[in-house]
Simulated assay, not measured.
Amino acid sequence: MGSGATDSRELLPELAVLPGHLLWRSAARVHAALAEVLPPGVDLHAYAALLALGGGATRSQQELAQTISVSRTTMVKVASALAEDGLVERVRSPEDRRSYALTRTPAGAAAARRWRRHADAVEAQVTAGFSDAERDELRALLGRVAQDELSPEVPAPLRESIGFLVTRVHARTHREALGALEPVGVEPRHYATLTALTATGPVPQAELARRLGLSGASMVQIADELEQRGLVERRRPPADRRVQVLHLQPGAEDVLDEAGRVVRAQVEQVLATLSPAEVSRVVSLLQRLVTAP
């Protein structure tokens, strides 16, 4: 699922109002749906690349990576697999012999048509319980937020995918939050953990992981980092020495306050194209996306 996330449905009230946290949890739901719905041999990045090569277009791997919003490393793997399966022709670019140009084959066009139903199934699972009007509303709001991040060549089926838009807006929000929080000395995941601990008080490490939607291994790493910063302390209660309870330490509140100001300003910038009422609506819809059974 990536980033140490789990497909948890629980949301702490204190985190349920934070757009950045909701986007992260929503992206986790998308990745969980991909893992559950897509059959072996179907890769959504490959599907996106085949869409971007529609209409007889020939594009470099770099152009494709920008178009479907993936890293160059991921694009190299996707292109290699598509070429091996005969779904694209891959040749050295005449303008730059160090790069490849890709063209979709007839088999690739057929694969894109077949894979569309799997992409639709992922979308249906992510937005289960939403009406068509609500899907359209969330799609339109996320599309406005993501507009500056998307290449003009992004295929229409991707622009219309809530799953794709959620992951793109989350990627931007997380990237910018990392940079904004660097002077504070914490990361978005640390901010969420400190926020949760402030709300719950001392809590077992495993319980906090569940409430945050984190894997146990990720929670251990975060607790290690916060403990090294002197912001959190692990304690083993006498009644059960197997349990590690997390306690906030003096100074954590000041760090959390500073981080909160930074995060709020950064998220306001990301969502600047939306009115306050629209931001509230996005928050409400993402809460439902995260918590829907």
Rank of each mutant, 00 (worst) to 15 (best):
Q147S: 15
D240K: 06
G251T: 12
A252N: 06
G163Y: 04
L64V: 07
Y191I: 02
S99T: 15
P155G: 07
D148N: 06
P237N: 00
G179L: 04
E95I: 10
R59Q: 10
E123G: 08
S275H: 02
A33S: 11
D7N: 15
P13A: 03
A259M: 08
V243Y: 04
G129N: 04
A192E: 14
E278W: 04
R210W: 03
E278T: 06
A192P: 01
L87P: 05
D7C: 12
G20I: 09
R25C: 11
V283C: 07
Q244E: 14
T173P: 02
Y47D: 14
R288F: 00
A259E: 05
V186A: 04
P237G: 07
E84I: 08
E14Y: 04
G179F: 01
L158T: 06
V166L: 08
A46C: 04
A146D: 06
D148T: 10
E63C: 08
L12T: 00
Q147T: 13
F164P: 03
S8A: 14
S69H: 14
L150K: 01
A109Y: 01
V169E: 01
V91M: 15
R189K: 12
A111I: 00
V267T: 11
R139T: 15
R29D: 10
P40W: 05
Q287I: 06
P250D: 13
T73R: 10
A65G: 07
R90W: 04
I68V: 15
T67L: 03
L141A: 07
T103L: 07
G56A: 10
V184M: 03
L285G: 09
D132K: 03
L248P: 10
A223E: 12
P13L: 00
E176K: 11
A146H: 03
P237V: 05
R59D: 00
P152D: 13
E160A: 15
A112Y: 00
P237H: 02
S8E: 08
A110W: 03
A252K: 00
A192W: 13
V154M: 11
E36R: 13
R261L: 15
T105F: 06
A223L: 02
Q266A: 11
R281N: 01
F164Q: 01
A177C: 08
I222A: 07
Y100Q: 08
V42P: 02
T74Y: 02
A239Q: 05
L271K: 01
D136G: 13
